[in-house]
Simulated scan of single mutants.
Amino acid sequence: MKMKNNPADTPAPCPPACVVRCAHCALPVPPGLVEPGAEHQFCCSGCKTVYNIIHGSDLARFYAIRDAVGDPDAQPARTTESDYAEYDDPAYLDVYARPLEGGLMETSFLLEGVHCAACVWLVERLDRVVPGVVSSRLDFRRATVTLTFNPAVSPLSAVARGLDTLGYPPHPPRGMKKEQIRRAEDRRYWIRVGVAGALAGNIMLVAIALYGGMFGGIGREYEQLFRWTSAVLGLLSLAWPGSVFFRGAVAALRTRSVNLDVPIAIALGVGGVWGLVNTIRGTGEIYFDSLSALVFLLLVGRWIQHAQQRRAADAVELLFTLAPTRATLIEQSDGAERRRTVPVEA
């Protein structure tokens, strides 16, 4: 005979209010880690360490900011408890640090665990946690912090340990210098594109006046003025924004090869010369409106091509992030073996 369970004997599910939350990350604390009678509960030792560091440094406002902005990507704090001794190696400092006036140094780190505005607020107050830190600025989008510190007060390893204890393990900014060079090149290229677009737009306005004069009539003096204005602006477009195609063609011919820049440069050069000749003669087509528009569109197309190539190259470079950043150096001295951690750059 089967016994029916009495609903009154079945324990009711625990309501959300009774779920024990971590005092740092606000995630549920596993039942095995709940400490009865403790004022604060933590889901892991990392959260407990970070919580004590934050409150000990009078940075408890971090939690108010986090709650105000909301944090859908909450995660337990991750601390590695590494000593980061390799960051004090001269070989590492030569590559990743830059000396400043007054004995200060500047460096950058890529940080793990950056996911909200409260993280930015906390990282930029690193000077309250680590003595010797003068300033810290966090680029949230790239999760990169730029630090100015006094190595005589705190070596770089101590600064890295400070970030680690806050739950943001630091890593060497591999490729940062390359990224800075790339961004400078992008700025110069977009200035070139902007100038090409401005010249093409103004030449088009002049061309509208000339085309209108073909149907409605235009004074000879105004026609010559517009033709010379178009010629001057068109030659400027070919001379600076369009020079990238001429340089590419010359470089290809010097290596006895032909690339896409060669026919483009020939077309631009022939069109520019013929347009200038017709401007001087005062008759015939001058082509500068078409040439300037062609330069602008070709530059935009080249940018799209480079962007696709760059994405492919970045995907390949991600593989290099799997490479180790430090190694253990074994030294023999008077029969004794000594081990120390050094950066791979050494």
Rank of each mutant, 00 (worst) to 15 (best):
P324D: 15
R182I: 03
A118M: 10
I264L: 15
L235S: 01
E221T: 05
V123D: 12
G103T: 10
V69E: 15
P28T: 03
V153Y: 13
I54G: 04
P7E: 13
G216D: 15
R310Y: 10
F246K: 12
M3N: 03
T341Y: 07
F215W: 12
W121A: 13
T80G: 05
V273D: 11
E86L: 08
G282P: 00
L319M: 06
Y211M: 03
A312M: 09
P241Y: 05
V50E: 14
W228H: 03
A91V: 04
A118V: 04
E317P: 00
S154F: 00
T10Y: 02
Y63W: 14
D261M: 11
E124A: 08
I181S: 07
G70H: 14
A60T: 03
S230P: 01
A265C: 01
A152E: 14
L299T: 06
P76T: 04
C116M: 02
V50S: 15
F288A: 09
V277T: 14
S237I: 03
S45Q: 01
D164C: 11
G46P: 11
L294N: 05
M176H: 03
H171K: 06
W303R: 06
P151V: 01
P241I: 10
V129K: 06
I330S: 06
R256W: 15
A97D: 09
A198W: 02
M3R: 07
T79H: 14
V206W: 01
L260Y: 14
R125H: 15
P7V: 03
A8C: 00
A346S: 14
P173F: 06
I218V: 10
D139P: 02
V153W: 09
Y87E: 02
V95P: 02
R326W: 12
A91P: 10
I181T: 11
V342Y: 08
M1V: 02
L27Y: 06
A249N: 04
P343T: 08
V232Y: 01
V258N: 14
E81F: 06
Q75W: 09
V130T: 07
D89C: 02
G132C: 07
M204E: 09
Y168A: 00
T321D: 15
L318F: 12
G272N: 10
V270D: 13
N259G: 15
C43Q: 02
R128M: 06
V153N: 10
L27D: 00
L122Q: 00
F226P: 04
V50I: 14
D9Y: 02
G46L: 08
G272Y: 05
P16N: 04
